[in-house]
Simulated scan of single mutants.
Amino acid sequence: MKPIIHPADYYRRMLAAQPHALKRLDGSAAIVKLSRDQQVPEDDGTTGHWYYVIAGAARCSTIRADGRRQILDLMLVRDFFFVGNSQREEAIEAITEETVLAGYSAVRLEGLGERDREFARELREITFQSLERTRQQLVVLGGVTTADKVSAFLLLLEERYGDQRGDIRLPITRYDLAEYLAVSVETVCRAFSDLQQRGVIALIGIRTVRIVNRDALEHQIGRRYPNAGSDTIAA
């Protein structure tokens, strides 16, 4: 199935309302609407494209030797990521049923950057953002237990998308999260259940999590009370 190039004003209005480093190019960005598991378009040439996530989520993944998929990078709303023609062993795909991207030609960005110092700074900003996402992923995956990893992931989402009540709408399923954390979905579900039973979080429906005790969540990953006794769950 080919991706749908969707010039709808609706998505352009969404793009215009979101602050990001390439605002000046919003009018010329290609709007790409994908369904779950659809591949993000690859570039036919050698320059590639930068993509910005307007809605939904995308993943960069590979298939492990045991046949399981491992998500190497998770791109959420307001993230930039690069797609070139050299990523032969990695698949870059939409991870939700309605994933909408803004596409920018890398060769055009580089040309503008050579002529405009301010734009060159903006281009560096999106590159640094990608590096920061890698750092955040290492923090999440660095947890000793699955509960540590889930806690770090929830705190990351709260920082980016949480509301005043501490409610977080999960952008991906537990199956996707399991592939991101490189554990089984059963282990992820046990970690959520244990955190809920301990009163650290509350599950509101299928995809919404409310942080009830933020101190306990931070304690879970050692951000607070680093010398406290080991009372983490072993999921």
Rank of each mutant, 00 (worst) to 15 (best):
F153I: 09
A91W: 14
S105H: 06
E125A: 15
L131Y: 09
H219R: 15
G111T: 15
Y104R: 07
Y52I: 02
T134I: 09
W50Q: 13
L22V: 00
P41Q: 03
G229T: 06
G143W: 00
R12T: 00
Y11W: 12
K33L: 02
A17Y: 02
L72T: 02
A91G: 07
L25Y: 11
C60W: 05
T187V: 01
L203A: 10
P226V: 03
R169N: 03
L181F: 06
E218V: 09
W50H: 08
A106V: 08
L25M: 14
R190Q: 05
S61Y: 03
Y10F: 10
K23T: 13
A191K: 12
D167S: 01
T187W: 07
T127M: 04
R64V: 01
S35T: 04
P3Y: 01
E159Y: 14
M14N: 11
E93M: 13
I54G: 12
I95W: 14
S105A: 06
I172N: 12
A147C: 05
V32E: 02
Q129L: 05
S130K: 08
R121C: 11
L101C: 06
I172W: 03
Y161G: 03
R124C: 05
A16M: 08
L25D: 03
D73P: 12
A147K: 11
P226A: 04
Q136V: 04
D163Q: 05
F153P: 14
G56F: 04
I5G: 03
S86H: 12
L34M: 06
Q164E: 08
L101W: 08
R165S: 01
F128H: 13
R224H: 11
V209H: 11
E98S: 13
F119Q: 06
I204M: 10
I221P: 06
A29R: 10
S130I: 05
R133S: 10
I92R: 14
E118H: 12
E98M: 11
I4Y: 08
M1L: 08
V77F: 04
T99A: 05
D148W: 13
H6A: 05
V53I: 13
L170N: 02
G166S: 03
A191Q: 14
T187G: 11
D44Y: 09
Q87T: 10
I172T: 09
I201T: 04
S130H: 06
V183K: 10
G27P: 00
R68P: 01
V185Y: 05
G229S: 08
Y51Q: 09
G113Y: 07
A106S: 14
V83W: 10
A17D: 12
W50R: 13
L15C: 09
I4F: 04
S35H: 07
I4D: 03
N227K: 15
Y11I: 02
L195D: 13
G67Q: 07
S130N: 01
T134C: 07
G84P: 06
G103C: 05
A58F: 01
D215N: 15
G143P: 07
S193Y: 08
M14I: 03
G45C: 06
R24P: 10
G113R: 03
A8V: 10
K2N: 07
M14Q: 00
G48C: 01
T187S: 15
K33M: 05
D44A: 04
T46M: 10
L112S: 11
A120F: 08
P7V: 03
H6G: 04
M75N: 15
R36L: 06
V140P: 09
E158Y: 02
L131P: 02
R165G: 00
L156P: 10
R115C: 08
R12V: 01
L74C: 12
R88S: 05
